[in-house]
């Protein structure tokens, strides 16, 4: 049971204490501040003013998935799913995956410039159309057609 509880807490520590942004996210998740000091006494529900999580430090024990006897397979599955995730719909194309983020940024950059180019092309075409229309009007002004014979 100790080992199970230890692993449970360790997974929370790995998730929520490794960076400032994760910590903030953790505080939003729990609806409580994350404290590195354990206050014995507070137990369930509204007595809890903070959640006790020690800042996670990587070492031989906690950084090796195979040391997670209970949650190891799930952690492996999550990490594999993160690696293997690929967009399947058009909407998902805009969601950055976990692997090859540089490629995603390059793709977004290309997409952005592609979009600008297409919009530019459209505007150019419209501009050309307006110009042609104006030229036609100018010709029409220079050579007025006789209205009365």
């Amino acid at each position: 049971m100790n080992q199970f509880q230890k692993e449970l807490r360790l997974t929370h520590e790995i998730l929520f204490t490794r960076s400032l942004s994760s910590r903030k996210l953790g505080e939003r998740f729990y609806g409580r501040s994350i404290s590195s000091e354990c206050n014995y006494g507070s137990y369930l529900f509204d007595n809890v003013n903070s959640v006790y999580l020690r800042p996670h430090v990587f070492d031989q024990t906690s950084s090796n998935v195979s040391n997670f006897r209970f949650f190891g397979p799930r952690i492996i599955y999550i990490l594999q799913s993160m690696e293997d995730w690929r967009p399947r719909t058009f909407r998902e194309v805009f969601i950055p995956g976990y692997a090859d983020r540089r490629d995603w940024w390059v793709a977004m950059f290309a997409l952005f410039f592609g979009f600008i180019t297409v919009v530019g092309l459209g505007l150019s075409a419209y501009q050309a159309y307006l110009a042609q229309k104006q030229v036609a009007l100018a010709f029409e002004a220079l050579n007025p057609s006789p209205t009365h014979v």
Binding site: L15, F16, S22, F29, F58, N64, Q80, W85, Y98
Partner: peptide
């Protein structure tokens, strides 16, 4: 199991990193 675990980087199991991608957390 050991082979798989050694290949994967547990440092990716970070809430902000997870939430920056397609996955979301739920209590």
């Amino acid at each position: 199991y050991d082979q798989e675990s050694s290949r994967l980087d547990i440092s990716n199991l970070d809430a902000s990193y997870i939430c920056s991608g397609p996955f979301r957390l739920m209590l």
